[in-house]
Design a protein around this nucleic acid. Structure first.
Lengths: 340, 340
DNA sequence: CTGTTAGCGCCTTCAT
DNA sequence: ATGAAGGCGCTAACAG
């Protein structure tokens, strides 16, 4: 049997309460006593039973999730997954609160972060926007000892404890590698549709994409980026413009959301059939993949991201390590042949 | 607060012991009493706190994992991941025993299953081999109420409770889709290297691959399959033969393990550069991908498979549901651009 | 500063 | 067939 608090109390010649104080770094223990207890912990190889501890504490984890109120399938999926997680709250001892904020708006996000901080949750997750004020708000929360996890879009340089999302530079590189191979040997223009260059994930995807095309496929020229604000109609107009202005267009990389617009524009011009790579598997992109309108979809598993964010927030709140490999969010590549 | 056993005892007008008996379907409760308790459970919406139950029971989960003793990187990785899981045994209340059996040998596997059954573990995981005797052995174990999970290679039609592995038909289809697009428009021969047609996962990959090539890329002809027994030297000879006999070879699909041999054969003939798709990301395939010797690698995450198998065995042992999406093992596609 | 004691939610003898 | 009481490993008042 593994040692318990009793064993280490005996071994150190102290009471349970003292052991507990040492275990939980609470004050009121003489340095010498503390040392004896720590020695006992060390020699007996004690590891605390987290389940028992949580039971005794009646611990629940109040978490606040701040999500953009974007009207696109990916964000809807993220919301859904979070609701599923909330349904499991009872058995997972979590208590999750969702707060919606307008997308791409630093000011609103900063205000919401401040408000979330006031409720003193056990952890906060947010889809970050690249902004100094947001960074400062995150740092202030972290300074209070509340772990912050960025979700989907990161904010490096801030004091967030973890980023639950994909490596977007690698995602962009992957798109570049695929489009390059699919067009093997041909030369021409490639269009890029983004949501907003304000969010880091979109910028990083573009960087990765450009890097690969420049290095490995010099025949493929990237046209100036069009922004679709992750909005179906804006995106549709952008892609329609792209196709009208560049008749010989070889490929399109849609690195944001709002793919409904992309697909509508493609359908409107059946005479042009560029190689198309998009992000996020939704009902729309799935159908377009099956029909051959889109050639590949890069996806991030929203369910995995949500579950990972929760696991990590719990671990950080408890100060225990995470299984790093389990928390790496992978880039799924879907062709019409491996749709789940 | 969620209701506890006390609440339902009060509500039903019985003692805790009786509630417990009903909860755990133990005998010694009058039908009428049982009904009252069950009604209380229903109306209060009681769900048992598994952590507390496990604490009280001092529950541990003795699991037996039966793995082939194959000398290839993927199986080494699988072993490693299992050892990592064993290192977490203390906090996860598991007690994992590994048994090795010779690969591709039904008789040895059947004997090992019988032996494992005798130790009455809380669950058994195995890399299945397609065989009637194996199926019968699994069914016998399942009949005793011990959950069985197949790992990496499935045995449908058996009474295994779950399969922790990828959809191999989809994997083969994906390989077909990629090779077809990478060779867009060209016509010629494609070689296939398998481990053994005895294991279901290899057969399924071939089926999926053939289906896509036949349907979508009729210009690509699949040569007769060569078996490499997942052994580097046998595989090397097979691929060398393939390249020697078919000078115009356009592509190779290596759907088994033993990729060291494949890579050695490719390096020996720098004059021929077929499009190559292989399975499993290992040190060898990773290097070959970087060097451009291999064009894409389809991977199954051994860590995910092991963790999933353990989670599912626990859930089955406790009779609680699993999060289906979390247990779906994905097919990772790696190009040189998205190596992790 | 340190120890005693009473739980957390559940299970398990041992009585009745 | 049912109940009372003690304990799993840990924490948290409340006393000294």
């Amino acid at each position: 049997m593994r040692p318990t608090v009793h064993d280490i109390a005996d071994h150190a010649g102290v009471s349970l309460a003292t052991v507990d104080r040492v275990l939980n770094r609470r004050p009121g223990v003489r340095a010498a006593t503390r040392a004896r207890v720590e020695a006992a912990i060390e020699t007996l190889g004690y590891v605390r039973d987290v389940a028992a501890a949580n039971l005794a504490k009646g611990r629940v984890y109040p978490f606040t999730f701040i999500l953009p109120s974007s009207d696109n399938s990916f964000m809807h999926g993220l919301h859904d997954e979070l609701r599923h997680a909330m349904a499991r709250s009872a058995s997972e001892r979590t208590n999750i609160r969702i707060v919606e904020v307008p997308a791409f708006e630093p000011t609103a996000l900063i205000a919401t972060l401040a408000e979330a901080r006031d409720t003193q949750p056990a952890g906060i997750a947010l889809v970050a926007v690249e902004d100094e004020g947001v960074r400062a708000a995150i740092d202030a929360i972290a300074a209070e000892g509340i772990p912050v996890v960025t979700l989907v879009s990161d904010l490096p340089g801030s004091r967030r404890a973890h980023y639950a999302g994909v490596d977007n530079i690698a995602a962009g590189r992957t798109a570049g590698g695929l489009i390059g191979r699919f067009l093997r040997g041909r030369a021409g223009k490639i269009g890029v549709l983004a949501g907003s260059m304000l969010v880091r994930d979109h910028r990083e995807r573009l960087d990765g994409f450009s890097a690969v095309l420049t290095a490995d496929y010099p025949g493929l020229a990237i046209l100036p980026v069009r922004e679709g604000r992750d909005d179906p109609e804006v995106a549709r107009a952008a892609v329609a413009g792209l196709m009208a202005e560049h008749p010989g267009l070889l490929g399109i990389y849609s690195l944001g959301a709002g793919n409904r617009g992309l697909i509508a524009a493609l359908k409107a011009r059946p005479d042009i059939r560029p190689v198309v790579i998009a992000h996020e598997l939704t009902a729309f992109t799935r159908a377009a993949l099956s029909e051959g309108l889109i050639d590949a979809v890069l996806n991030q598993d929203a369910g995995h991201e949500i579950r990972s964010a929760i696991r990590v927030l719990k671990a950080k709140a408890d100060g225990v390590p995470v299984i790093a490999a389990q928390e790496r969010i992978r880039i799924d590549i879907f062709l019409k042949d491996n749709l789940p």
